[in-house]
Simulated assay, not measured.
Amino acid sequence: MTEIADLQMPDDADTLRRLTDRLGRAAEAADLLDVAYRTVDSPLGRLLLAATPRGIVRVAFETETEDEVLDELAARVSPRVLADARRLDPAAREMEEYFAGRRRDFDLAIDLTLVMGFRREVVQLLPTIPYGRTASYAELAAMAGNPGATRAVGTACARNPVPLVLPCHRVVRSDGTTGAYRGGPEAKTALLQLELAHL
């Protein structure tokens, strides 16, 4: 009989990936997987994508540590969080198409569990800003029916749990400068330039 101490983690990354995928499939088949996640490479660095059965719930940049994002998901959505690439294959494919300039809008179901109240109203308006265009925080506040809430709009954009999918990078200051962004100001500028290049 093999002692537990004799068991070793596979040192082959491919074997580990296959075992993780197998565990994810088994958990999903047994309805034990509430939040699936995976990482994808992008021109902005590695992105973490997470989804519930209702839709994509989180997109995280490299500026956010994976452990912190997974802890947030476990605390605020469900502790049943597991790597499972298959659930996120459509999101990964759409991200790739977006960064290649072949996609302007995302066709993904979105789970807004992580955003409430006025912030939810704001992020739901973000897809109305056309690809390659921008709106100011003040314009978005007016669109949300609260013209005096410019600062609250800025906070909603800064805490948008699904950037890119809900394009908060298209919201800028009234003077045209980019303003803050969850992925950093360089990422926001790069996304705006990417969209302008593919108009």
Rank of each mutant, 00 (worst) to 15 (best):
V69I: 12
R93S: 07
N160K: 06
R102C: 00
A83E: 14
E139D: 15
A50F: 04
Y131M: 01
P10M: 01
P43Y: 11
A187R: 06
L166S: 09
R182F: 00
P43T: 10
R182T: 06
R93D: 11
R102I: 00
A156S: 12
G148W: 05
M9V: 14
F61T: 05
D12A: 10
L196V: 07
R46T: 15
A197Y: 01
G184C: 02
R54M: 03
T20Q: 14
E96I: 00
E28A: 14
R25Y: 02
A142Q: 15
R170H: 08
L70M: 03
E96F: 00
P90V: 06
L192T: 02
V123Q: 09
D6P: 03
A190T: 09
G148L: 12
A187Q: 04
I129L: 12
R104E: 13
R120S: 09
K188Y: 11
L164H: 12
I56P: 04
R38N: 01
E62N: 07
D175I: 02
T178Q: 02
T2A: 07
A180L: 07
R18W: 04
L73Q: 03
R87G: 04
V122G: 08
S136R: 09
I110V: 15
E28Y: 03
L48V: 07
P127V: 05
A190I: 01
T178I: 09
E195I: 04
A13P: 15
D111S: 07
Y181G: 02
I4P: 14
Y137K: 03
L140R: 07
R46E: 15
V40Q: 03
V59R: 02
D71R: 14
V81K: 08
D105F: 06
A180R: 14
P43Q: 10
A141S: 12
A158S: 13
V122I: 12
D107N: 15
Q193T: 09
H198S: 11
L7G: 03
T20F: 02
P53C: 05
E3V: 01
R93G: 04
T39K: 11
L33V: 07
P167C: 04
A91E: 01
N160W: 08
R104V: 00
R133M: 10
T52C: 04
H198D: 08
V81D: 07
L19S: 09
A180Y: 06
Q193L: 11
L73M: 02
D89E: 15
L33Q: 05
D84T: 00
E3G: 14
E3M: 12
A149P: 08
V69E: 06
R86Q: 06
V153I: 03
L191A: 11
G132L: 08
R170T: 04
N160D: 15
